[in-house]
Computed example of a mutant assay.
Amino acid sequence: MTLKVYLSGEIHTDWREQITQGATGLDVVFSGPVTDHAASDDCGVAILGAEDNKFWHDRKGAQINAIRTRKGIAEADVVVVRFGEQYKQWNAAFDAGYAAALGKSLIILHGAEHAHALKEVDAAALAVATEPRQVVEILRYVLSGSLPA
């Protein structure tokens, strides 16, 4: 059984690499958003033309990014959403809600400092992890039934 896993959320740490490297040898295909922050922010104006108003600048980029995000979440078997410590990730919360609305298996990843703020998001998830290693172990268990050594 191949699992399609969409990795959503913060882009400022190496959590995606930790998961993809930890899952080496598992039958998993990963996808995710564009993680180049500047490219993600500026794709709309780079492709469709400059905007004087920052609102429209951001909106063009958000809409183009949404094409990739919607497709990735819709095609995923499992959606992992990471909330980092440094920024409020409203887009990550939106992705979690979108995945939940589609009935996707949802794994939330965050530290203890966000437990209260994300209680509703956590309640929609099938698992809440605090470390990328735990996400890998969940994927391993789902695919093989093997518990961590």
Rank of each mutant, 00 (worst) to 15 (best):
M1C: 08
M1K: 15
L3K: 04
K4D: 03
L7M: 08
I11D: 00
H12M: 10
T13I: 06
W15R: 08
R16W: 02
R16A: 00
E17I: 12
E17P: 06
Q18S: 09
Q18M: 12
Q18T: 09
T20S: 15
T20L: 02
Q21C: 12
T24I: 03
V28I: 08
S31I: 08
G32V: 01
P33E: 00
T35R: 04
A38Y: 06
A39H: 05
D41T: 08
D41L: 13
D41C: 05
V45P: 06
I47A: 11
L48D: 04
G49K: 14
E51Y: 04
E51D: 02
N53K: 03
K54P: 05
F55K: 06
H57V: 00
D58F: 09
G61D: 01
A62L: 12
A66E: 04
A66W: 05
A66V: 03
I67D: 03
I67E: 00
I67L: 11
R68C: 15
R70C: 13
R70G: 15
G72D: 12
I73R: 04
I73G: 00
A76I: 06
V79F: 00
R82S: 08
F83I: 02
G84K: 13
Y87K: 15
N91Y: 05
N91V: 05
D95M: 01
D95G: 05
A96Y: 07
A96N: 02
A101W: 14
L102G: 04
K104D: 09
S105L: 08
I108R: 15
I108L: 15
L109A: 12
H110R: 00
H110F: 00
G111M: 13
A112M: 08
E113F: 12
A117Y: 15
L118W: 04
L118I: 07
K119L: 10
E120C: 15
D122N: 15
A124Y: 13
A124P: 11
A125I: 01
A127G: 06
A127C: 13
A129P: 08
E131A: 07
P132W: 09
V135D: 14
I138Y: 01
Y141W: 14
S144G: 06
S144N: 10
L147S: 13
L147A: 10
L147W: 14
P148S: 12
P148E: 14
P148H: 09
A149H: 07
A149S: 07
